[in-house]
Structures are given as structure tokens and as C-alpha cells.
């Protein structure tokens, strides 16, 4: 016993060192399983409100850019709206809006998605796993695993929430794979290689699939994202001859360096779907 106490006294520093390192490893291990520990996140009230203050300071310098992005989004939405309001001007003298309610070929679709707007108060692009902190939380209906999209494309997924803040892991992270679809319906995965915040990679695309530079890549229903959100645009195509596969390099649709406003997408059907899928396991 005496020897044991002597041993501890002699190596107390080393033991403390090892103990603390083990604690750290446990913490790292817990966050890497994506469950995360909620205290240690920037959704935490104190940290997030600090970020919010910093963001308020930088806010005015970005107003012009924000105006531009809002104008562009308005334009895009207006164009989409005209698609629903197409009127056959040759035959329709009244110019009334044509509704398709009585059309027998109408596709049944539920309004699954509810959008909540949120302001980005902190974001990173330099780490291996990047996070975004937003100023909406549980009080505004934001929950874990909701999708986050920006005006121009996919952004990420909520992982921590507090009362008034939430943090999301962006698609720029190694932990995060996003199910993606090419224009012709080919489905695959988009990953981030962890190097540059404006490049994504879509791997294992069969060689016979015809793609061109400038083609868009969208999200699918298979992931937590709503379908048909733009992920990125192809700018380089690499062919691996030995495996008959193509590697597509994408530019992200969202500019992650300058992201300011995002929408948190609530999927009304998510719970039901998850329950159903859990039964299959």
C-alpha cells in the first residue's frame, strides 16, 4: 500500500495528464457519433449570444451583398411562380388563372415542408467538420435533424438546439454525406473532401452516364433535405478507367464564406416516415 501511495505521489502529474487526455478522448468519441454533447456546442446560450453580438457589428458591412442576394432570390421565385400561372393566352380571353384541381392526371402531393427563416450568426469553413450557428431555436420550432437551406442551395442539418439558438453541421464536413441526384435521375452521394469550402465531390457515378460541365446536382427525398434543392454545379469530370466510374467535381451552390440568411426546413412527415422506417430494421 505504501509503495502504491509513493507511486501515485511520484507520478501524480503524469497520471493527471493521462486522466485529462482520456477525458478528452471520451468527449471526442461522443461527438463523433453525431449524438453530440449539447453543453459543448455553440448553440449554448452564452456562446451564441456572443456570436450574435459580433455578427451585429459586421452586419452593416454586408447589407449591399444581402440586398443583391435577396433580389436574385426574388427573381428566381417569381420565375418559378410564373410556371404555376401559365395561361394559354390564345384561347383564354379572361386571362384567369388556370387551376388543375379537376385534372385527373394531377399528382397527389402533400405540403410537407414548412420554412423558418433564420440569420446565421457564426459559421466556419476552415475546419474538417464545419458548423453554422443560427439565431432560431426550440422556441421557434427548430428541432434536431431538420434541413438547412439557403436562398441558393443546400446548407446542412441541425444538430444542436437550445431555446433561442441552434447549430447545424454544414455539408462541408467529413461526417456528412448528402444523397444527390443528377438531372437524368442517377442517384449518388456527394461528399466533401475537406480541403476547399467551394468544392464538393460526387463519386462512383457509372461511366455510361452522360454528364456535361455545368450540369446541376440536386438533393433527393432519401435524405433529410427536401427534394430538388440545388447542391452544386459540375465543373470538372474525372473518369477512372480501371473501375468504369466517373468522379464529378462540383462547385457548391451556396457560398459558404458569405452565408447570411438561411431557411430551416421542417418536414411535417419526417416523424411518421422515421417511425415507419424504424419498423423495417
Amino acid at each position: 500500500m505504501r509503495n502504491f501511495i509513493l507511486f501515485i505521489r511520484r507520478f501524480s502529474n503524469l497520471l493527471l495528464f493521462l486522466l485529462l487526455e482520456v477525458i478528452c478522448i471520451v468527449l471526442i468519441g461522443r461527438t463523433n457519433t453525431m449524438q453530440g454533447n449539447d453543453i459543448m456546442s455553440s448553440a449554448n446560450y452564452t456562446l451564441a449570444s456572443m456570436y450574435e453580438q459580433r455578427d451585429d457589428m459586421a452586419y452593416y458591412f454586408a447589407l449591399r451583398r444581402m440586398n443583391d442576394s435577396l433580389m436574385n432570390e426574388n427573381l428566381r421565385l417569381r420565375q418559378q411562380l410564373t410556371a404555376y400561372r401559365q395561361v394559354d393566352t390564345l384561347t383564354d380571353s379572361t386571362g384567369k388563372v388556370v387551376t388543375y384541381n379537376k385534372d385527373s392526371q394531377r399528382v397527389v402531393k402533400y405540403a410537407d415542408y414548412v420554412y423558418h427563416s433564420a440569420k446565421v450568426i457564426n459559421n466556419t469553413v476552415g475546419a474538417v467538420n464545419n458548423f453554422i450557428t443560427i439565431n432560431r431555436g426550440e422556441a421557434d420550432g427548430v428541432k434536431k435533424d431538420m434541413a438547412v437551406v439557403s436562398a441558393s442551395g443546400a446548407v446542412g442539418r441541425i444538430i444542436h438546439t437550445s431555446k433561442h439558438y441552434a447549430s447545424a453541421i454544414s455539408i462541408l464536413s467529413k461526417k456528412q454525406q448528402v444523397s444527390a441526384r443528377l438531372k437524368d435521375g442517377t442517384v449518388g452521394h456527394v461528399i466533401w473532401k475537406g480541403q476547399r469550402p467551394d468544392e464538393l465531390t460526387m463519386r462512383d457515378v457509372p461511366e455510361q452516364i452522360k454528364v456535361k460541365k455545368g450540369d446541376s446536382v440536386f438533393t433527393t427525398e432519401f435524405s433529410f433535405f427536401p427534394p430538388d434543392v440545388l447542391i452544386g454545379v459540375i465543373y470538372k469530370i474525372e473518369t477512372v478507367k480501371s473501375k468504369n466510374l466517373k468522379i464529378l467535381h462540383l462547385r457548391t451552390a451556396t457560398n459558404f464564406r458569405r452565408i447570411q440568411y438561411v431557411y430551416v426546413v421542417e418536414n411535417k412527415m419526417a416523424e411518421e416516415r422515421l417511425q415507419l422506417e424504424a419498423q423495417n430494421k
Binding site: 478528452c24 478522448i25 461522443r30 461527438t31 455553440s42 449554448n44
Partner: peptide, 10 residues
């Protein structure tokens, strides 16, 4: 806590 990387910096 600020960087969302529990334990790595520590």
C-alpha cells in the same frame, strides 16, 4: 465549446 469540436482543442 466555441468551435463545436468537443475535446480536440483540449
Amino acid at each position: 465549446a466555441f468551435m463545436n469540436t468537443a475535446g480536440m482543442h483540449a
